[in-house]
Design a protein around this nucleic acid. Sequence first.
DNA 1: CACATTCCTGACCAATAGAACAATAAATGA
DNA 2: TCATTTATTGTTCTATTGGTCAGGAATGTG
Lengths: 206, 206
Amino acid sequence: MTDKKQGKIRIQSQEKILLAAQDEFITNGYKGATVQSIADLAGLPKANVLYYFKNKENIYHAVLEQTLDMWDQGIGDIEYKDGPKIAIEKFVSSKVLMSFNHPKSSKIYAMEIIQGAQHLKEFTRTYLRKWVREKSKIFQQWIDEDRMLNVDPINLIFLIWSSTQHYADFDNQILTVMNRADYEEEDIEHVTQFLTQFILRGLEIK
Amino acid sequence: MTDKKQGKIRIQSQEKILLAAQDEFITNGYKGATVQSIADLAGLPKANVLYYFKNKENIYHAVLEQTLDMWDQGIGDIEYKDGPKIAIEKFVSSKVLMSFNHPKSSKIYAMEIIQGAQHLKEFTRTYLRKWVREKSKIFQQWIDEDRMLNVDPINLIFLIWSSTQHYADFDNQILTVMNRADYEEEDIEHVTQFLTQFILRGLEIK
DNA sequence: CACATTCCTGACCAATAGAACAATAAATGA
DNA sequence: TCATTTATTGTTCTATTGGTCAGGAATGTG
């Protein structure tokens, strides 16, 4: 993750830089982002940014790492012992929460995948593939036990991912369409309820 | 759309350029894309590309226009007279079809929105907002007539958009997770069935 | 206090960017 | 046929890019 001994100034500056970099990479993509622009957003001279991170690629890697940490840390796990109802309620609500609370991480991730997952090939091929396989198995068990309808678990996972992340990645569109300036606190609860209920019905779980 | 009288050479070259540009904009974003790279992909000298499109911005606008045309042309409309079952079957299947047949358009659009909809503010504020309002009204009618469950029509639309577009925007991730090289013809039917049935159940439409 | 180490930054550089331009080559049409 | 428009491209210009570097400031340590 992070390395070496860390002074407090070092950490502060690095955090400022990473926040700035996240914004810059979202709005301009990896190639379009400029170190100068990141430096400006962070309120530091460019040379200082390059002092903390050797080069642009390094900054991006740090941002991505942050993003992946968020992913598997904030994600409510799907556990067999919970049973399908509780498991889905947990999973959907934690995904929705993450979309509303950390939309930027979601966006960085989405852009990376859309653009061909150049820097995340390894992550998807190993970690993510394994995760999907494991969770699919759990869903299949519940199906075999007649605790939920027989649907393809993989497509189910995709549906949950997409419908929840949509509120982060497409927040601009959603807010514009709804003629609103920002999300409100109650939107989180509203969306969670809507998606949870909808998905439970789709699986005929009572 | 396009302007002025058109020679056939002009049209051919423009199409080559737009195809190349689409790829370049997807992998590198607007700012990261270079005219040189577009020219190389199209097999033309840079100066020739700039002869057909005055500048980079113009190329991007043409690509976006193409994308929007695709959007409202390929979209199966939601019509009251169809009733909720047929309407949703039509709409979902046309959206899925578009995701599988024109993933690049979907990606261009997705990136534009994620990055802040800089070039699409007008489209979302006018066209899209109106579309959502109209279709919401139709859903609400069906709800009032007890032909489907009482869910928030707007969130329903978002769910359909997100779950269908996911197969285009995140095709890399999906294929990697499923350990496959490409989508097959039968995937389209499979996904369409899955999503249609799932959504109909979610709305308690028989 | 002296020294070493870490931190910070202005100045600089080669490479690449978008775009204008000028000079041709084709095509067209009267 | 020949003049006029259209198509094509090598060259050139200026701005910006990622990244280096030398040297100074700050901080710590004995």
